[in-house]
Amino acid sequence: MFGPEGPTLRELAVQALSSVERGYDLLAPKFDHTPFRTPDAVLESVAKELAPLGPFEDGLDLCCGTGAGVEVLTGLCRRSVTGVDFSAGMLDVARRRVRPPAGGPGVAWVRGDARALPFAAAFDLVVSFGAFGHFLPSELPGLFARVHATLRPGGRFAFPVLAPPRPTRPGYWALLGFDTVMRVRNALWRPPFVMYYRAFRLGAVLRELGEAGFVTELRALPEFGRRGDGGPRVRLVVARRPQPAAGSVNS
Rank of each mutant, 00 (worst) to 15 (best):
G3N: 06
G3F: 10
E5A: 13
G6P: 06
R10W: 10
V14H: 11
S19F: 06
E21W: 02
S45V: 02
V46A: 02
L53C: 00
G54M: 07
P55G: 04
D58V: 00
D61R: 00
L62N: 10
C63D: 09
G65K: 02
G65S: 04
A68C: 13
T74Q: 12
S80E: 14
G83M: 02
G83T: 05
F86Y: 14
S87W: 04
S87R: 01
R97E: 00
R99D: 03
P100K: 02
P100D: 03
G103E: 08
P105R: 13
V107A: 05
V107Q: 07
D113I: 08
F123V: 05
D124V: 02
V127N: 01
F129A: 03
F129K: 06
G130N: 10
F132R: 10
G133E: 12
G133C: 05
L136C: 02
L140N: 08
V147M: 09
A149E: 14
R152Y: 07
G155Q: 12
P167A: 09
P170H: 10
W173H: 12
F178A: 10
D179Q: 09
D179L: 08
R185G: 07
R185K: 14
A187L: 15
L188G: 06
A204T: 14
G213I: 08
F214D: 09
V215T: 15
L218G: 10
A220N: 04
L221R: 06
R226K: 14
D229K: 03
G230C: 10
P232T: 13
R235P: 09
A239I: 08
A239L: 10
A239T: 06
G247C: 06
S251I: 05
